[in-house]
Design a protein around this nucleic acid. Structure first.
Lengths: 351, 351
DNA sequence: TTGTATGCGTTATCAA
DNA sequence: TTGATAACGCATACAA
């Protein structure tokens, strides 16, 4: 009788849907619980039946249904990183650091790209909450957006990466942008520049503001007149915007034209550099350029780019570790980690 | 009695777990089915109760459990892209194209990074199958890996991006790498080069092989001796490997040293360029360089890089559209789409 | 060592 | 218009 059932079960068609533990159980002639044991506590089941079940699994092409599994278990094994701009190598390096930490903890990392749009960010966040992810790392479009706090309020561990927000509800891992701005300006002043452009935007980006403020302070402390640090706002931190800024810079009357530019990131700096060279300017003698991030392409640029280096992978790794700490340690206390950037001087400022 | 129950329900603690439809129903004093209706067919429920339920939802901070939802529905609303190398701007551009198409179809895209490792790729794929994703796009480490066919056999729509494989089970979207290799070599021969290096690897990468074969054919057809197209294998397509290849190139006896290099991608080309400039070589007069992909940083390089351009976003978009077609159209027929690359000549080869 | 029964949170089918 | 109830596939406590 048992054998007959087995044959019938094995022959039963699955009409398109993928085989479940129940199907495997039927095919192997065992109970559903035994199949589950094979999956989760193989030690507890006899070798003979285990082999029979495993055989049935491969025959049927059984694949665990993660939804059912995690519905039952109540928690998922995935981490998420909501990235600000997937085309910026800085963030992909941060993601590498996160991924390394996630892999060590045997968690899967899914990466979402908000592409600098608050609406996308919000949509991703909502989706991730519905997915009951273990935790979320994010580089927000705007760190003070209310929905970020809402995530933390729901009890989902959250870590802000490369931004800060004075909030008791989550950890932040960032780089001291104000110091970065200071380093850039001190270097340019050291090199003898007395009129400098700050290029970057939009000013809604906190890191742009902070880099600018750091630059301003260093400028004032050097005893230079405030109006000689001229801000050229851009609408994004991209190569294209950098090129555009180059045009506007060239359009300034020579009396007011800066001899150096501090760009809010390397993409802008590379765009500016590209435009400058195209316009026949010599870098650094006609125009010195400092970038920010020290992405891998900065050193390979037309003129190797002086840049403010951030510890990219370490940023990601640390953020992931804080997230895991929050998820696992009952007495985790939120921290605000601030890394120190360092200036890497190259040909774009060294005459 | 009803009011009393409502109060009791509202007061019931959730001991940490997030509120479910049941909790919402209790808090709103309605049945579970009504809550579900509010979520899925709001038109069918009266305004008064709907508002009461919605109020209860925000009060409790209700968030749909995607696991339960999709367990019930049988299918998820997510697409996945298993990327080969997240730090290569080429692939992030492809991902942008995919994402655009996914967004239009109201699907969420999750990005996984195999980081050039077959084991990671396999792990990601297994996880995605367990997640019951609607479909998978991937740029495989090795297109003939058996587990790729296994995915298709399970009935999960799959599209190979930027690689080809002669297989009836899925679509491929790629660029004619052989033509790309041909274009690069024809251009270099046009420029008068008679000894050229092909730099790239590992040769297990089909696209490296194809670009090489295309180069070889064009070389032979130009009537040049086969041994004057010298292959310098690398162990990866990275900036670092490009620099290393530069050293090996410099180490060749001058009689056998090529006057030009065709690199299997732009990262290698940028590394080579960096090394060449560091070694005091003039590009292109001492060494001409052609890259592949035309990533955004190619034009901004130390010497703007001649490169073979691929339609990156279009590649991604087309792949995603084929995937959606396979997922939705009953009579979808698998296709092999091959885009034509084009050579973009810049200073690194133009004297 | 194996089988049975229950529930996770949701949607869908009924009946009321 | 609403409420009761049955799956979805899995893991587990408990019974055998």
């Amino acid at each position: 009788v048992n054998g007959e059932e087995e044959l019938m079960a094995a022959g039963r068609p699955l009409d398109g849907r993928s085989p479940s533990v129940k199907d495997v159980a039927a095919a192997a002639g065992v109970s559903l619980g035994t199949v589950s044991n094979v999956l989760n506590r193989p030690a507890v089941v006899s070798v003979a039946t285990r082999e029979r079940v495993e055989r049935a699994m491969v025959d049927l092409g059984f694949v665990r249904n993660e939804f059912a599994r995690q519905l039952r278990m109540g928690t998922s094994r995935t981490l998420a990183y909501v990235m600000l701009d997937a085309t910026n190598p800085f963030f992909t390096d941060v993601a590498q650091g996160i991924e390394a930490a996630a892999e060590r903890a045997d968690l899967t990392l899914v990466i979402c790209n908000s592409n600098n749009r608050a609406s996308r960010e919000q949509a991703h966040l909502a989706h991730l909450l519905e997915q009951r992810v273990q935790g979320i790392l994010m580089t927000p479009v705007d760190p003070v957006a209310p929905w970020i706090g809402a995530v933390a309020d729901r009890g989902v561990p959250l870590v802000i990466v490369d931004r800060t927000r004075d909030d008791e509800r989550f950890c932040c891992v960032a780089v001291d942008d104000m110091l970065g701005g200071r380093l850039a300006i001190e270097h340019l002043v050291d090199q003898g520049h007395r009129r400098v452009a700050f290029i970057g935007g939009p000013s809604s980006l906190g890191q742009v503001r902070e880099r600018y403020v750091g630059a301003q302070r260093a400028w004032i402390e050097a005893g230079l007149p405030a109006e000689d640090l001229v801000a050229l706002p851009t609408s994004a931190l991209s190569v294209t915007e950098g090129r555009g800024a180059g045009e506007r810079l060239a359009g300034l009357p020579s009396s007011r034209r800066p001899t150096a530019a501090f760009c809010a990131n390397d993409l802008v700096a590379l765009g500016l550099l590209q435009h400058a060279i195209g316009a026949g300017l010599k870098v650094p003698s006609d125009l010195a350029i400092v970038g920010f991030d020290d992405i891998v392409f900065a050193a390979a640029a037309a003129v190797p780019l002086t840049s403010v280096r951030q510890p990219r992978e370490e940023l990601g790794r640390t953020a992931a570790e804080l997230l895991l700490s929050e998820a696992n340690d009952k007495d985790h206390v939120h921290q605000r980690v601030l890394f120190q950037p360092e200036l890497v001087a190259r040909a774009s400022t060294l005459s």
